[in-house]
Measured scan of single mutants.
Amino acid sequence: TFTSIVTTNPDFGGFEFYVEAGQQFDDSAYEEAYGVSVPSAVVEEMNAKAAQLKDGEWLNVSHE
């Protein structure tokens, strides 16, 4: 299960995956970082959410 939350205070020191406002979700980078295949429906969902981000916001993507 993939989830996401919007934050204005990303923790770059941890093992977190963020999408910056104005960027798209990079499923290849996510797969490389976590060894998890990302279904195309999830990629579309995360890109739709990322498109709604305002300046200074980040989308924190995770999975269980």
Rank of each mutant, 00 (worst) to 15 (best):
A29N: 03
H63S: 05
D26P: 04
T7V: 13
G56D: 05
A29H: 06
G14D: 07
I5R: 08
H63I: 06
Y34W: 08
S4Q: 03
D11I: 13
A48P: 00
S4C: 13
L59K: 00
T3N: 10
A50N: 02
S28M: 13
V61Y: 00
Q24S: 10
G56Y: 04
F25I: 03
Q23D: 08
S40W: 14
E32M: 14
F12H: 10
K54F: 05
E45R: 04
F12A: 05
D55H: 13
V38N: 00
E32S: 13
Q52K: 09
G35C: 10
Y18F: 09
P39H: 02
A21D: 02
E20D: 05
A33N: 09
Y30S: 01
V36T: 06
F12V: 06
S28F: 12
A48C: 12
K49S: 09
V38W: 00
A33P: 03
H63E: 02
E32F: 10
F25M: 07
T8I: 09
N9D: 11
T8M: 11
I5T: 14
L53Y: 04
L53V: 00
K49C: 11
T3S: 11
E64G: 12
Y34V: 04
G14E: 08
M46I: 15
A51K: 08
S4A: 13
G13Y: 09
E45G: 03
V19Y: 01
G14T: 11
D55K: 14
A21C: 09
A48L: 13
Y30F: 13
E57K: 01
S4T: 08
S4P: 03
L59S: 00
N9E: 12
V36D: 03
Q52W: 06
D55V: 14
V6A: 03
N47L: 03
A29L: 11
A41P: 07
N60W: 15
S4M: 08
G35H: 09
H63L: 06
A51W: 05
H63D: 02
S28T: 13
Q23P: 01
F15P: 13
V36Y: 07
A21Q: 08
T3P: 02
N60R: 15
S37P: 11
V61Q: 01
D11M: 10
V61N: 00
S40P: 14
F2Q: 02
A29C: 08
T3A: 07
K49R: 09
Q24Y: 12
V42L: 05
G56A: 04
D55L: 13
A21I: 05
E44G: 07
P10E: 02
E44L: 11
M46Y: 05
A21Y: 12
N47Y: 02
G56T: 03
T7Q: 04
A51F: 06
D11V: 12
P39Q: 04
G14Q: 08
Y30R: 00
D27L: 13
D55I: 13
E16M: 14
A41C: 13
A48Y: 12
V61S: 01
H63V: 07
A29Y: 07
T8A: 08
A33M: 15
E20F: 08
E44D: 12
L59G: 02
S40R: 12
V42G: 01
D27P: 15
T8Y: 08
E44Y: 07
A21N: 07
P10Y: 01
L59Q: 01
F25W: 03
S40D: 10
D27V: 15
Y30W: 07
K54V: 08
Y30G: 02
A21T: 05
S28W: 11
D11F: 11
E31W: 12
E20C: 08
D26L: 05
T8S: 10
E16Q: 13
V43Q: 06
Y30H: 01
E16R: 14
D55E: 14
T7F: 03
D55A: 14
V38M: 05
E20P: 14
Y34H: 08
V6W: 01
F12D: 04
Y18T: 01
H63P: 01
Q52H: 08
V6E: 03
T1S: 12
V61W: 00
E20W: 13
P39N: 03
E32V: 11
N47Q: 07
K54L: 09
Y30M: 03
Q24E: 10
V36F: 07
F17H: 04
V42Q: 03
V38K: 01
E20G: 15
T7R: 00
Y34E: 00
P10F: 02
W58I: 02
N60S: 14
V38R: 00
F15G: 15
T8W: 07
T7Y: 03
S37I: 12
F17P: 01
Q23F: 10
N47G: 03
E57S: 03
V42R: 00
G22R: 02
N9K: 12
T1F: 12
L53F: 00
H63A: 03
V43K: 09
I5W: 14
V19E: 01
T1Y: 13
A41Q: 11
L59W: 00
W58S: 03
A50W: 02
P10S: 02
S40C: 13
N47E: 05
F12L: 10
E45L: 10
S37A: 12
G13K: 10
A29K: 12
A29F: 07
E20I: 06
G56N: 07
L53E: 02
E20R: 10
F15H: 14
Y30C: 04
E57P: 01
D26I: 08
K54W: 04
S28N: 13
V36G: 01
V38I: 08
A48H: 11
T8L: 10
V43W: 06
A33L: 15
F25S: 02
T1G: 12
F15D: 13
A50Q: 03
G56K: 04
A33Y: 12
V38F: 02
L53T: 00
D26Y: 05
G35I: 02
G14I: 07
S37N: 09
E16V: 08
I5G: 07
F2N: 04
G35W: 04
V61F: 02
F15W: 10
S37M: 11
A51I: 06
D26A: 04
D11E: 09
Q24D: 08
V36C: 08
D11K: 11
L59D: 02
Q23S: 13
Q52I: 08
L59I: 04
F15M: 12
Q24I: 11
G22F: 06
V42C: 07
A41F: 13
H63W: 11
E45A: 09
F2S: 00
V61G: 00
A51E: 10
E20Q: 14
G22S: 05
V6S: 05
T1D: 07
W58D: 02
G14F: 06
M46A: 05
A51G: 09
V38G: 02
V42K: 03
N60A: 15
F17T: 04
V6Q: 02
S40E: 10
K54D: 05
G13W: 08
D27A: 15
N47I: 05
F2C: 04
V38L: 06
S40A: 14
S62Y: 13
A29W: 07
F12G: 05
V61R: 00
A50G: 03
F17D: 01
A41H: 14
K49Q: 14
I5P: 02
F15L: 12
D27G: 15
S62T: 12
Q24K: 13
Y34Q: 04
A21W: 10
K54P: 01
Y30N: 01
L53A: 00
F25A: 03
I5K: 12
P10H: 06
A51V: 06
P39M: 01
T1I: 14
V42M: 04
A41V: 09
S28R: 15
E20T: 09
E20S: 13
V38P: 06
T7M: 06
A50Y: 01
Q23N: 09
Q52N: 12
Q52L: 13
L59T: 02
S62E: 02
F2Y: 11
T1E: 09
A33I: 15
D27T: 15
S62W: 15
E31I: 07
G35M: 06
G22N: 06
Q24P: 10
G22E: 04
V6L: 06
A21S: 09
A48N: 13
V38C: 05
Q24C: 11
T8P: 06
I5A: 11
A51D: 08
A50I: 08
N9T: 13
N47M: 06
G14P: 08
P39A: 04
Y30P: 01
T8N: 09
A41L: 10
G13S: 15
S28K: 15
T7H: 03
P10M: 03
E45T: 06
V42W: 06
D27Q: 15
Y18I: 04
G35L: 05
A51P: 05
V61M: 02
E32Q: 14
E57C: 07
T7G: 01
F15R: 14
G35Q: 07
P10W: 01
E44F: 08
Q52D: 11
N47P: 04
E64L: 14
Y18S: 03
S4W: 15
I5D: 06
Q52E: 12
F17Q: 03
T7N: 03
T1N: 09
P39E: 03
D11P: 05
G22W: 05
E64C: 13
Y34L: 06
N9Y: 08
F17R: 00
V36S: 04
T1C: 14
E64P: 08
E57D: 04
P10R: 06
E31D: 03
